[in-house]
């Protein structure tokens, strides 16, 4: 029944999605990359090639802020990989225990922070960690550790790590759920075969389950990477656009926002903002490519 004329129903089915997606996502994305090559001179747009990037990476006024934001962003990501994902895997491993009661209840409760907005999370933790209110020092005092307390969000050396841990607290539910789902797909026979060979308990986890869930850990890593290098909201709600104290919590998202919109005395600059967005695009693209071509193809998948 195939005819050579255009099948209009296919066009009708595809057109709305393609139009919205192209016009609002893909076109602005490439337009932003293009705008990074321009600058504004006397109210008109002038093509300057890669000058904005030279300024961003080389000009001492800009490059300090850029490398600071990039390094902070890397540290933010490292904390997530080292804390969030292991905790998520641990919780999932416990939850997937076949005889565990109340598993659904724990699962739903632990997922609650993930559904709350950054505004709630940011302010709630700001209040709890605040030395004025005294919940955190009070609780440390109760266990005799009051000397450990410091105004963590106000100290340059702790603020970023503290915020990264708050973000970990918020998002631990996602690796937990994905790993939990992966663990459920491991057939009972595989585990029983291991038991016959004397592999039980923790060693069954390390030797049988962990290798089988590696692809899911890969997916979680790349989701964490993209999420972290595009983060903004938590830092903005907790520390404001200036990402204080003294820019110690500045990450690429807040740096781009400040550059684009301006703050205090500095005027907003859409072209430098685009240059930073382009840098973020490059970083995310490199990460995704490393994952797709370097990691994903090497992970062995097992079909049961």
């Amino acid at each position: 029944m195939r005819t050579s004329r255009i099948k209009w129903h296919i066009v009708v089915f595809l057109a709305p999605a393609m139009l919205v997606y192209t016009a609002v996502m893909i076109f602005p994305l490439f337009n932003t990359l293009r705008l990074a090559l321009y600058t504004e001179v006397e109210q008109s747009r002038v093509f300057v090639g890669l000058d904005n990037f030279r300024t961003l990476f080389g000009d001492p006024q800009w490059s300090g802020a850029f490398w600071n934001a990039l390094w902070n962003n890397c540290w933010f990501f490292i904390i997530h990989m080292l804390v969030q994902n292991p905790i998520g895997i641990l919780l999932a491993a416990i939850l997937s225990h076949p005889k565990l009661r109340f598993a659904a209840l724990y699962r739903s409760a632990i997922f609650i922070p993930t559904i709350l907005s950054f505004v709630i999370i940011g302010f709630a933790w700001k209040l709890i960690l605040s030395p004025i209110w005294g919940i955190a020092p009070g609780m440390l005092d109760a266990v005799g550790l009051k000397f450990l307390f410091a105004p963590w969000l106000g100290k340059e050396e702790y603020a970023l790590t503290t915020l990264a841990l708050v973000s970990v607290w918020q998002f631990v539910g996602i690796p937990m759920m994905l790993i939990y789902a992966a663990l459920l797909t491991i057939p009972e026979e595989v585990l029983e075969a291991g038991e016959i060979d004397g592999i039980t308990g923790a060693s069954a986890f390390w030797k049988i389950k962990l290798p089988l869930i590696l692809p899911s850990i890969g997916i979680i890593s790349i989701l964490t990477f993209v999420g972290n290098f595009n983060a903004f909201d938590l830092i903005y709600t907790a520390q404001g656009a200036l990402a204080g104290p003294n820019f110690s919590t500045d990450i690429l998202g807040t740096f781009m926002y400040r550059t684009f919109f301006g703050f205090q005395l500095q005027l907003g600059d859409p072209h430098m903002g685009s240059a930073i967005a382009t840098a973020m695009f490059g970083i995310i693209l490199i990460g995704v490519c490393i994952y797709l071509f370097g990691i994903q193809t090497r992970l062995r998948r097992y079909q049961f």
């Binding site: 602005p28 993209v226 995310i284």
Partner: peptide, 12 residues
């Protein structure tokens, strides 16, 4: 669009 966040295109 699954992997590239839409925020990158904010300026445009």
């Amino acid at each position: 669009g699954i992997m590239i966040p839409i925020r990158i295109g904010t300026v445009a």
